[in-house]
Design a protein around this nucleic acid. Structure first.
Lengths: 228, 228
DNA sequence: TCAAAAGTGTTGCAAATACACCCATGT
DNA sequence: ACATGGGTGTATTTGCAACACTTTTGA
């Protein structure tokens, strides 16, 4: 049974429900998470994950999407529920149960728009060197990173972290940045191509060296496939 | 941020937080889930997962353990958070966000004690043939079964479904019941033994046929190991 | 002596790994 | 010409799957 009447007067459970979102991207070969500095509240000035209360008539997924900084522009962030944190004392102001989400975003620039948001500032921080975080958000990020690493191995979710077209080298760098270990170029290449997830674009990207063929994902929907 | 003040008067978010638990066991070669029939409420008489409101000073994990029928005797149920369901309309009485848990139990008898509980009746039902369930509990069970199947493959969690000592045949039957497919006896045996998770007890269990060696798990703590 | 489950060993295939060489480009 | 990353191929190992036979008990 999922019990409890709705009305505030009748309900003996004054818990508030919130969402917190750990949005990740990879920039400069480093896995980064989006942090925000709160203007007010018990942790004013601290870095924390973006988040906030769930509206009365709002689903959890909708709330997570809405709480993203510069939300409008960020409609194509991949979001997935992670875990729900409900220790009684996790928020000094009272009982707050927080549903944590993982977000994945390709283009880091899109999100940094400071906006006349509720946050004093917003920044992409490398997950390997995080500042002290408010609430239990350090634990949230740890869990989120673990989930991300695991899920890249058996899904095609990398597509959420890449632009439309990319080279195999870029794809490999991405995996290496997130998994934190080097991969054999030739084996990676064969593996990925054998999955038939990519479509060769025919075009080529020039650079300082030999131009690399461009690829795109055949499907940009979440699927489970054994990648590594 | 996980915001929101605690007080009921100040909070515009009258959401109640509940837990629902899908407890599984295997009996007679069939994966079964524990269902309860509510005495009252909008779904009185319907089958549903056991569950209920989270107390004010109670963690989610504690709430899940407490909501188990015949709770006292069931202290050694393995519990793990599954997913949080928060569609605004999922409870007809008002907004209830429900944190779903998966439970695993070895001894089916332990739990069936009807008890002067809040439930009219309690029963182990095969997951393959479930009655209509209250709320969104059909979806909860579906997700829970998927999680259970997946997790048996890369953890040692089977130990939660077995008594202290067991034969390799029993272990295999358990896997077959949950995965829903037959496994090669010899390969299964070799695989499992090579993991070094089991300790041979020396003793033997007699039966109508050739007696089988008894084993026990070296460690009864959750670990991740690639089982299949 | 028969049925039914326990226990053991081998073999072939397929996938993962490790590794070496040539190619195309900008500087 | 050379440094740098792109592209292709091959040998070896390792793990998985398929499979056949012997053993021990109760009935």
């Amino acid at each position: 049974m999922s019990t409890a009447p709705g009305g505030c007067a009748e309900s003996p459970v004054p818990a508030a429900v919130a969402v917190d979102v750990a949005v990740f991207t990879v920039r400069a070969g480093t896995l980064r998470v989006l942090l925000a500095r709160a203007r007010s509240g018990p942790f004013a000035g601290w870095w924390a994950l973006p988040g906030g209360r769930v509206g009365e008539q709002e689903s959890l997924d909708d709330a997570a999407a809405r709480e993203l900084p510069a939300g409008a522009a960020a409609r194509d962030v991949y979001l997935e529920q992670l875990y729900t944190f409900g220790q009684p004392q996790r928020d000094p102001r009272g009982r707050v149960v927080s549903v944590a989400y993982v977000g994945l975003l390709a283009d880091p620039e899109r999100m940094t728009a400071p906006a006349a948001d509720k946050y004093a500032s917003v920044a992409w921080r490398p997950v390997s060197r995080l500042p002290r975080l408010a609430y239990d958000h350090a634990a949230v990020v740890r869990l989120a990173v673990a989930r991300l690493r695991a899920k890249l191995q058996y899904t095609n979710l990398v597509y959420t972290l890449l632009p439309r077209s990319f080279t195999l080298g870029e794809l490999q760098s991405l995996y290496e940045a997130i998994l934190g270990r080097a991969l054999d170029r030739r084996n990676f290449r064969r593996r990925v191509l054998s999955l038939e997830l990519l479509r060769p674009l025919g075009r080529v990207r020039g650079g300082p060296h030999r131009p690399a063929a461009l690829y795109a994902f055949r499907s940009r929907r979440p699927m489970t496939v054994s990648v590594l």
